[in-house]
Structure formats: structure tokens, C-alpha cells
Design a protein around this nucleic acid. Sequence first.
DNA 1: TTCCAGGTGGCAT
DNA 2: ATGCCACATGGA
Length: 314
Amino acid sequence: MENEYISEIIDDIDLRDMFDCGQCFRWYAGEDGSYTGTAMHRKVRVRLLPEPGAEKRGRLAIWPCDEREFNEIWRPYFDLDRDYSAIKARLTENDEIMARAVEYGGGIRILKQDPWEAIVDFIISQNNNIPRIKGCVENLCKYFGEPIEDLPSHASAKPLAADASGEPAPAQAAKGAGEGGAASSLPGAYDIPSPEKLAGLTVEDLAPIRLGYRAKYLIKTARQVVETGIPSDYDALLALEGVGPKVANCIALFGLAAYESFPIDVWVRKVMHALYGLDEDDKKAMAVFARERFGELGGFAQQYLFYYMRDTSK
DNA sequence: TTCCAGGTGGCAT
DNA sequence: ATGCCACATGGA
């Protein structure tokens, strides 16, 4: 396919594991195994061209993309230069439980996401479920985000609008399940709204997004970020409104590349209790356990466990 | 109807 | 420091 870049062979990679393990909310599965998503201020389609005789191993194909963009943008985003085989080997050594989780989700790679997007996503995520989080993020982008370049094929009709006024309502919103239909440019091409944009809104402005009580957190946090910049570590994240220990750990892990972070949510509590026998509501003990057991690999361990527990306990 | 989802802030001990 | 509990929303 023209304008498609195809990578070298990558080990330990699987698109479903990567995009469906709960770390990101703007990638959508196509019917052919491809995924289309919005990240790094771009919208692209990715495929994995499997290597015969090997599971979760293959070439990553990204469209539209050239070699320079691949190396500068997508190689870091997909964390392609990290040796996940080594990480999995260390985590599963003397740990049968982790071995099961890694066998299930062995194609996970921790995406290096934009810190501000991670802040927005995980404030919305609190006391919420993943399908609804996706809907909220998508609508937030449609209503308040800047348009970005859509995929080439059916994009000719989209002239990138010189809007700038910032009033709500790209008409196409509405309807959730839409399922593509004829011109299947599904969730549209809108970037995550900037801190400045959200800082200028009111909870009334955000009402159509249905964020519930999280709307005020988002606005307050946006204003804090405009004031003092993107936090650079866990403690600075905790100072944001609506950001507690769990959300701060998610932002640090997915947005700040703080790979020792170990977010403890309801699913991790379940897995730590069911598989490691810890007291289900002693989060402090879980944090200590994770630090001692997984150390600097805490974030990877957490993702394998979270994904395994969430998918198999349904 | 009640319960639950990648929890947090506020307030009372 | 620790223990409740309200908080919005929509799906099961």
C-alpha cells in the first residue's frame, strides 16, 4: 500500500494485547485485524504482518507513514527498542502466576503516550468503565479538540476547517454504535483538547460530554497545568485536582515513562488477592509487595496482571 | 432496582 | 494517619 511504512521484525508484539489492555482509549479494531487510532497528533492505521511460525512477532505496518516519521514518532510511541523478552523472562522467573499472565498478554508493549493526554484520559477513567471512558474521550475530542489530518482514502471531503472559534458541535457526533457504514472513517480525526482550551471552559460547556463529577476535575487540572506546566513526576501529579495515587501511577507509567509505577485499581486488587493471596483492601501492602517483587519492572508486571485478570474473570 | 466501573476529595475520628 | 461517603453516568 502506498505511503505505508513496514518495520523490521518485532518480537513480543500483538495489536490486540497492546491496544486492548487498558492503557489507551483511542484505538479501534478494524474487521481485518488492523487498528485505527489517534495519537501523537496524528491519525493512522496499523497492521501487524505476522512472521510464519511465531506468535506475537512480526512487522509493524503503519499507514500513512514514512521512514523518518516512523523512527521519530512511532518507534518511541510503540516502545519498539525495548527488549520485552528480557522483561518477561525476569518477571516469570520463579513466578508461576506471572507466567500465566505473561502467556496471556505477551504482546503488550507500554505505549509512550503524550503526558497531557494521559492526564485527561485517566482523570476521566476514575470510578468509570472502559467503554464509557472511550466514549467520553472521543466526545471530548470531537467537541473541543483541533481537527487533525484524517486517513487519506476517504479524506478528500475534509478540508481541515479553519474554525478556531471553538464553539461546540461537529455535527457528526451523536450515535455511538454507528459501525462505520459506507464511508467508514469512524471516530473522526480530532486531537485531544489542549490544556489552554479546557482551562477556558466551564462545567456547563462540558455537560454534553457526560463526564459527571469529573468535569470539574478536568477544568481545574487544566488550569493548574496552564499555570505551572505538565508535572514531571509522581508527586507533582498528585497535586492536580482529581488525581490521587491510582491515577497518578497511570499517568506516570503511560505518560512519563516511569516504568516502576504500579497502579492499584479494582482489577489489580482482585488479582493480587486471588492469585497472590493478599488482603483485597490493603492497598498499602500491595504497593509494598509490588515494589519488592517487581521493582523497576512494576509497570510491566501490572499491565500483564491487569489484562489477564480483566479478560479472564469475565 | 441495585450494583459496578482502571477513585478522589472532604470530613469526622 | 485512617475510615466513611458523596459524587455522575450508563450498562448489566
